[in-house]
């Protein structure tokens, strides 16, 4: 079971996820210490391994820094559920083998702190706290293949031998 951290707003950008002042390293553990720092200074105190973030439109807009995905992953975040994603963030997530879920209404139906369970194959989010059942369209097959292979580079190694 995962706890949902809900941010009811749009355009959460990479500067908020991991401020550029910390881009002098690409160490995931180091980046995780500052995850979401400029948006929610208390985030790292409340997040536990396997938790999910739920948000609105255009999540991850801004810089191409994959550090944003690494800091979230380093912080233990299992997946991001958002109405839409900014394209570079979305692509980086797939390339890193990190799941993202596009859902139009999750941000309205899941409350901050709710316990959720996700079935990635079936495309179902169950909010155990309020009993809501939210369906989503799983990632396209080629993206799932990259994630199953453990990211883009492993995928390339496998495909190209």
């Amino acid at each position: 079971m995962s706890k949902a951290h809900v941010y009811k707003r749009d355009h959460i950008n990479t500067d908020e996820i991991i401020p550029a002042r910390y881009l002098n390293t690409d160490d995931e553990k180091e980046l995780a210490k500052h995850c979401m720092e400029d948006l929610d200074a208390g985030f790292m105190k409340k997040v536990s391994k396997g938790d999910v973030i739920v948000s609105g439109e255009d999540f991850g807009c801004g810089s191409s820094r994959e550090h944003a995905v690494w800091s979230l992953r380093g912080a233990g975040v299992q997946t991001i559920i958002a109405r839409t994603f900014a394209r570079i963030f979305y692509r980086n997530a797939i390339n890193c083998g990190f799941y993202t879920i596009e859902s139009k209404d999750a941000v309205e139906r899941i409350n901050d702190g709710d316990e959720v369970q996700i079935d990635y194959q079936a495309g179902i989010i169950e909010d155990k706290t309020n009993g809501q059942r939210i369906e989503f369209r799983p990632l396209p097959e080629f993206a799932l293949e990259i994630i199953r292979d453990g990211g883009l580079l492993e995928h390339i190694k496998k495909v190209k031998g």
């Binding site: 570079i88 692509r91 980086n92 883009l152 390339i156």
Partner: peptide, 29 residues
């Protein structure tokens, strides 16, 4: 490996920014 790589499109080319994994894939392949 920078989101503002789209700048070069002013020269009638296709240009886009990517993250580090895409960058690695492009460098190698």
């Amino acid at each position: 490996g920078d989101s503002h790589t789209c700048t070069y499109g002013a020269f009638a080319c296709f240009s886009t920014g990517v993250g580090s994994t895409d960058l690695a894939a492009a460098i190698a392949t």
